[in-house]
Design a protein around this nucleic acid. Structure first.
Length: 623
RNA sequence: GCCGGUGUAGCUCAGUGGUAGAGCACUCGAUUCGUAAUCGAGCGGCCGUGAGUUCAACUCUCAUCACCGGCUCCA
């Protein structure tokens, strides 16, 4: 890179060899219903999964059938097969399916008694079917036949004949492992995912959308835009943030810090490691030892005695120590300790991916210590802050989940009474705010219930971002107190909350939400000057300096390429505002503005551009 | 952690049992150019890593690491 005072970075290092981004041709809009919205798709996909199962058993006679439901954009079928299926097998299976379809086999529904079903399944030697049958509580049992040769237990509904399936609207997509009954202690099955539509056109549109989703994928965009990297020698799930990505991160941090200052939060900083003992008190060690990075011990003896240090998986015990460091008065409450705290969790290797599931991440964490009387009001304020953060970030598509304990599970600490109180507080909050929500039984933290905000990524996978939690248990375990008005010692309640959840995951979702086109206040580079000739460079340098002085992230393209190329590079780098500068502009102290969102805007005086940029940044708006 | 797939230049990818190629990026030269790619030359790879088979491995086998899809998990 050429050293240059006004060029923060070289504009040309990204996006090598990308195919030209054509403005997407807009063909007729094809509506793709989800399976749950379409009776005909339900039938198509049910039948397709049966046809696939029949084809698989023809080609792999040892494969045993289990279940094969429709899912929102296709279907799958799980088999127990001694020989694992590979992608190559899919072709042969599809071929076999076409044969079955062409045989125009009638799909015949039959009702039989439980005993009869049992007898027939036993004949077939299909143990999984027997288990399924045992779970069906109603009688008669429905069976669907494909012609004479093949049948399956199924509630339906189905098409009338395999002939109604269009082979050109079916695609077998991928093979995957899946556990019987979704239980990892049970047999590992082979799952084949497929999709089936009414018409080949729909299938084509479905595939087009999948490719489109891939273009938004934050892993791809993150690399193209140079926001973050992973290095083999650092380790999986441990992202490294480049200058551009760090700019993005700090904008988000600064934004939230400003909001928190307005709301009386107090910043704190705590270390990344602590003695194991701390997490024994909190209960983390007992509950999540396996999911923490291994303990660091001085010697074997210390290791035996579990005396050593661990990377922190959560920030709460640290904030609790700060609370505990002095005798607190009710006058100090609510006390809101906040920190962008980086935590480390030893996630299973198969879970890691991009920024959405990592092993080291930064929580926009805060722990609020409140009196029981303050709880409801303070919790409402937390939810309000969270919602306002989403609004500022233009994140609209999320679902609120009440993550409560599953009384059947034994993974929680604390009394039922404490849990009931905590869950009640969360319930009251969503009722007061009239928020639409759903309940996630068994989704609670081990120390308390949560209100979680769930978002989807480009590939329709769900991720929790923001969270707000009510906790009566850790105050108990750490013996927290405050002195009440009457001089008595009382126990505070804790609220754990993180509107972003984690900066990493938030940024992953934001990249996909914006498809890399960040609003100006977040964009790592806000404006790039594109000189038409060398003669205007002095003017450009002066303008960039002026902008930078005003707090605008401006840069100058010094690559010396022709204007068309400069624009192309800036567009591909998704820089929101471009300023073309030729002699005309230099002479008139103006900039010819082109935005990514709106194209050419014509010439504007430098001062006006400056002013409009600053305004856009301050108001989280557009140019 | 489990099942399947992938790993070739900085990036995106092609390729063969006889030790490799393209485009872009990068460097240099020419061009001084007005809203999505100027032309030419050059540089650049221990073909993820380790073992095995073979006269010979980037190619075949095994192991391992990383990534991708799914399952399980997610304080």
């Amino acid at each position: 890179m050429k050293p240059d005072a006004v060029q923060p970075d070289a504009p040309s290092e990204q996006l090598a060899g990308q195919p030209a981004e054509q403005p997407a041709e807009q063909p007729e809009k094809i509506y793709l219903p989800r399976t749950s919205e379409s009776e005909v798709l339900k039938k198509i996909r049910h039948t397709a999964s049966h046809v696939m199962a029949m084809a698989v058993q023809k080609l792999f006679p040892k494969a045993q059938v289990t279940i094969g439901p429709w899912i929102e954009n296709g279907f799958y079928y799980d088999f127990d097969s001694p020989d694992p299926f590979t992608e190559k097998d899919l072709k042969a299976i599809k071929k076999e399916m076409i044969k079955i379809i062409n045989r125009k086999l009638p799909v015949i529904r039959e009702e039989v008694s439980r005993a009869e079903a049992e007898r027939r399944i036993t004949q077939l030697n299909e143990p999984y079917k027997l288990e399924i049958l045992a779970d069906i509580k109603t009688e008669p049992i429905t069976i669907y036949h494909l012609g004479e040769q093949w049948w399956d237990l199924c509630a339906g509904p189905h098409l009338e004949s395999t002939a109604e399936l269009n082979p050109d609207a079916i695609e077998l997509e991928t093979v995957a492992g899946a556990y019987w009954r979704g239980d990892e202690t049970k047999a590992q099955l082979q799952r084949i995912y497929g999709t089936a539509w009414e018409t080949p056109k729909q299938l084509a549109e479905y595939k087009r959308r999948k490719e489109e989703a891939l273009r938004r994928d934050h892993r791809k965009l993150g690399k193209e835009l140079g926001l973050f990297i992973f290095a083999d020698s650092v380790g999986p799930g441990l992202p490294l943030w480049t200058p551009k990505g760090t700019l993005l991160r700090s904008q988000l941090e600064e934004f939230l810090k400003r909001e928190q200052v307005k709301r009386g939060y107090l910043p704190v900083v705590t270390p990344h490691i602590a003695k194991v003992d701390l997490f024994k008190i909190s209960g983390h060690w007992q509950k999540y030892k396996e999911d923490m990075f291994p303990m660091m011990a001085d010697d074997e003896e210390s290791r035996q005695q579990e005396q050593g240090f661990v990377m922190k998986p959560m920030n709460c015990p640290f904030h609790i120590q700060i609370y505990k460091s002095e005798l607190r008065s009710y006058r100090e409450l609510p006390m809101r300790l906040a920190e962008f705290g980086t935590v480390y969790r030893y996630e299973q290797s198969g879970e890691l991916g991009g920024l959405t599931r990592v092993r080291g991440f930064t929580v926009d964490d805060s722990h609020l210590f409140v009196t029981p009387e303050q709880l409801d009001d303070e919790f409402l304020k937390v939810v309000d802050l969270t919602l306002s953060v989403f609004k500022s970030l233009q994140l609209k598509d999320f679902r609120a989940r009440l993550s409560f304990r599953d009384p059947k599970l034994d993974k929680y600490i604390g009394s039922d009474e404490a849990w009931d109180k905590a869950e009640g507080a969360i319930r009251r909050a969503v009722e007061t705010l009239e928020m639409s929500h759903f309940e996630g039984i068994g989704e609670a933290a081990f120390y308390g219930p949560k209100l979680d905000f769930i978002f989807q990524d480009a590939l329709d996978r769900e991720w929790q971002l923001g969270t707000a939690q009510v906790d009566y248990n850790l105050p108990e375990r750490f013996d927290l107190e405050y002195v009440a008005e009457d001089g008595s010692r009382q126990r505070p309640v804790m609220i754990h909350r993180a509107p972003f959840g984690s900066l990493e995951r938030l940024i992953g979702i934001l990249i996909e939400e914006y498809a890399g086109d960040f609003p100006i206040w977040l964009a790592p580079t806000q404006i790039r000057l594109l000189p038409v000739t060398e003669e205007v460079l002095p003017f450009c340098r002066e303008v960039v300096l002026q902008m930078q002085t005003a707090g605008i992230r401006a840069e100058l393209d010094l690559s010396g390429e022709r204007l068309g190329k400069l624009i192309r590079n800036a567009e591909k780098a998704k820089i929101p505002v471009m300023a073309v500068v030729g002699m005309k502009e230099a002479e008139s102290q103006s900039l010819s503005i082109r935005t990514r969102a709106a194209g050419e805007l014509g010439s504007l005086p430098v001062a006006e551009v400056n002013q409009r940029l600053q305004q856009a940044i301050a108001e989280y708006g557009n140019f």
